[in-house]
Design a protein around this nucleic acid. Structure first.
Lengths: 115, 115
DNA sequence: TCGTGCTATATCGCAATTCGAGGTAGTTGG
DNA sequence: CCAACTACCTCGAATTGCGATATAGCACGA
């Protein structure tokens, strides 16, 4: 998902968290989700379609999102995604997991001298 | 690499950083490296052999580590790994990369309201 | 002495997931 | 008429962690 700043392996696993996070803003379609992630990350994260759409479909299949087609008068049709209650719960769990995870990495890799 | 706390996908990409970090302590062998990671992470990270040894071999092949066999008098033989100058440089780059990366995830996923 | 368990290294195949590339379409503007 | 942008989707290649498996030495107790 990296625009260019990060090795792809680092980004692994954070994609659902990122998608769910921007979807907390409301009902959005795929292309818009990608742009919001780009904007919020200052260009550091730029999800490719090959990562974005499969991840969206997975979350939908898991029941975290519901989707509907919009017959847009202007431009291609769009598929709008919305968080379910389960999705909101998953978002909270993923946020907490990320906080814990990054704290542990910090402890092992970054913090001052070890005994 | 998670003991049990984290989804494996999250850990992807952090393994080299973790290995290099504990190797900053000095010359260590694989099993010891794994135990130090376990200890420093409070049990949250417990690298399996299938992740540990391949990663060590990769770093060695890249020139970040050098290895030697020790003819241990008691117990099985051990392979000791030591950071090269290139490895120390890689460690520093990986640390900075991690700091930047986790900051961006924080900004997108965790921080307060977005405009 | 036999088995269990811990130290210690290593490899194999599987599963998960990202990426790049390619494909389909509609709209706008030069 | 074609390029550029929006917008969706899928496929194959590459990466890499994990579990299982293998080898081997040592220590301990039944």
């Amino acid at each position: 998902m990296p625009g260019r700043s990060f090795r792809g392996e680092l980004v692994r696993g954070t994609t659902p968290l990122l998608l769910l996070s921007v979807l907390a803003d409301g009902e959005l379609y795929g292309y818009d989700i990608a742009q919001r992630i780009r904007a919020r990350s200052g260009g550091a994260f730029a999800p490719s379609e090959g990562a974005l759409y499969p991840s969206l479909h997975r979350l939908e299949a898991e029941g975290a999102l519901v989707a509907r087609w919009s017959r847009s008068d202007r431009g291609p049709r769009r598929r709008y995604y919305r968080l379910t209650d389960a999705g909101r719960g998953l978002l909270e769990r993923n946020r907490r997991e990320w906080e814990a995870f990054s704290g542990v990495v910090e402890a092992v890799a970054v913090s001052e001298r070890h005994a």
